[in-house]
Design a protein around this nucleic acid. Structure first.
Lengths: 160, 160
DNA sequence: AGCCGTTACATGACACATCAACTTCGTTTG
DNA sequence: CAAACGAAGTTGATGTGTCATGTAACGGCT
């Protein structure tokens, strides 16, 4: 079926790329969950919170930054709030708005999780490739990303 | 935060790769859903059914082939059965087993969906890259995949 | 002041995925 | 042959994502 649509080189690239992502994602997610009890979604939110001053984001701004839908982020924050990783604070000056704020526990969690995650990224991908390959992968990614963001809608995605 | 762990080239590769996948996946899933009403999961199952003679798979074999857990596949098949895309048939000779069989409706659905999906793959990725880049992507993918499958467990993934 | 469109966020229903049982049947093996 | 083990699938609880919709508040305009 596929043979009629993609030639050998194309299909090899497509399959390899896809399989790489699948395996990498599940491996990293598994390691993260095992070592820290965090999901990738948790990690994404926490790592973005810890990077900014005040360790807080307005919901919409964060959603846009990590390219999630507002709804998705809202649900995620609700769950994280229940686990004490973040809290919501009503925004002064705009009674509609809210801040997501990192808690002590959230800070501890992300501090612990970061080495785990990034060493996984290294071990399972970065360190396997040459500098040229890394540059090439960067190029490829940017080409595709640029094409897909030419005017398209933002959210509706699945990760960062 | 990240800066301490990955240098510029590495981080660029990592981010671009990740963003590429996210955007590509959501774009393809969106187009597929819009044009055909199928999800990526549906597509994966259907496209594997249509390729084999008899248009049928034993559940475990299919699950292994597409690297899903049995449970995941079972749930998915249940939902697809409700929509008339596939049916289950008890296996002769092994009273535990069952076949998933493509229905007429399922065949129609996949026949319609395949051009949509593969043209999307082409437009949003394959045709944007040079032959060299495709080969390089294939190489990269295979390196990472090989590393991750050295002995690791099978399922626990998220797609095909 | 009153209306109106927009913004910020929440929520409920449903699709999807995972894990941990659990059933049922097949296959060894003592 | 019976007990034990393993294989094939199912099921239910739970977590996570999406879409459509809801609610409140803001801001401009008349």
């Amino acid at each position: 079926m596929t043979a009629k649509w993609l030639d050998e080189t194309e299909e090899r690239a497509w399959r390899a790329y896809r399989r790489m992502f699948t395996l990498l994602e599940s491996t990293l997610a598994g390691e993260l969950a095992e070592h820290t009890g965090l999901s990738m979604a948790d990690y994404t939110v926490l790592s973005n919170l810890v990077e900014v001053e005040g360790r807080r984001w307005r919901l919409t701004a964060l959603a846009e930054h990590i390219r999630w839908s507002q709804s998705r982020l809202s649900h995620q924050i609700t769950r994280m709030e229940e686990r004490g990783l973040v809290v919501r604070e009503r925004a002064e000056g705009d009674a509609r708005g809210a801040w997501v704020v990192l808690t002590k526990a959230g800070l501890r969690a992300i501090a612990e999780a970061t080495p785990t995650h990034l060493s996984g990224v290294r071990r399972h991908m970065i360190d396997l490739l040459t500098r040229d390959q890394l540059r090439e992968l960067g190029d490829i990614g940017e080409i595709v990303v640029e094409h897909l963001t030419e005017d398209r809608p933002g959210p509706g995605s699945t990760m960062a």
